[in-house]
Nucleic acid binder design. Sequence first.
DNA 1: CCTACCGATCGGTAGG
DNA 2: CCTACCGATCGGTAGG
Lengths: 207, 207
Amino acid sequence: MPGPRRKTAPERNDDNPANRREDLVRVAARLFREKGFDGTTVRDIATAVGMRSGSPFYHFANKHELLMAVMEEGLRLGLERSEAVIEDAGLPAMERFKRLVRTHYGILHDTGSDFIPVMLYDWRSLPDQYKRRIIELKDRYDDIWQSTLEDLQRQGLIRTDAKLARLMILGAINFSATWYHARSRAKNAVSLDALAEQTVALVTHPT
Amino acid sequence: MPGPRRKTAPERNDDNPANRREDLVRVAARLFREKGFDGTTVRDIATAVGMRSGSPFYHFANKHELLMAVMEEGLRLGLERSEAVIEDAGLPAMERFKRLVRTHYGILHDTGSDFIPVMLYDWRSLPDQYKRRIIELKDRYDDIWQSTLEDLQRQGLIRTDAKLARLMILGAINFSATWYHARSRAKNAVSLDALAEQTVALVTHPT
DNA sequence: CCTACCGATCGGTAGG
DNA sequence: CCTACCGATCGGTAGG
């Protein structure tokens, strides 16, 4: 008997269970971003990876654990990239800041990078018991920004309290998830590089 | 026969149908903000205003029209307050900007002001056919900010393109919906006045 | 990972 | 605005 009809070919790796799990997380991220956690059914996700409706529950105990996996993957990838920026010890704070800003825009808008937007916009759908684990990772990410902004503030390049600056700057960048669309062909489309540059120009005060 | 049990007294006005409609919009805004559009049932809303499950459909054709009414009310209130700021012709651009920032924080965090946060976080739940009407109002709101930021830029108080500045600054403020909680008793709690001040300090460059 | 299925919930409606 | 209700959908499961 044929499976359910699909409009597009399923996105699947080979049959290695670990890879199939990855498929689910990646596709879930995309669908959650597009339609929200509550607006996406487990059936939608299953179909998109070429499974039947009950099979995702072989990989995840329930839908919420799939949501957590999406967020966790986003923070894991984000931490990897941002820690690499920080580890370059010779970099001046201003240069570190510029790279962190550009990296964060990439995390939001690079192709296939749907994990962090899901965290930002479906945070309230995550049950409290799962939040702890994500918060732990999120705190590490915030720390990277925090220490960089404290350096900038000491140098007089930023005028406000470092913590508030962090919340506002990340807020400004995060909000681009609602209006920036990389695929847009509009003439006035801005590159991520330009966007990062403008963001830095807006909030820093060169002496 | 008694109605369904409630944990809290229903929030109701008198029986004037227009007032009951307002009750629904206000309560829906609060619940949508807390639990999301998809996470809130029409039954939840009905119970909270002291109606039975089918009765909201006497006031609204469907759940989506209730969502639209919430967003519309938010923009109506926001426009009212912001236009008042703009209309004071004698005001320097910098002072206008400060007041707009403070006003926007109020729109997000004043008691009972849940309409705009719903628009920000449940925008994708609004069907396209309803979006047009909301976009029209939203454009008027953006115009107020846009012209003020253009003035600031001409005076050299802001370093970036006015449109990008608008998106980034409103983004920074809007994102406070995810982390600022007016009721929080934390010692480091910041007032909306202080928040507005810090925001202005972050993005303006006094000469 | 599939088949076959269930229990619960939910938006919405007819008729008063 | 209430009563009584329906059709559809959905997360999740047993058994293989």
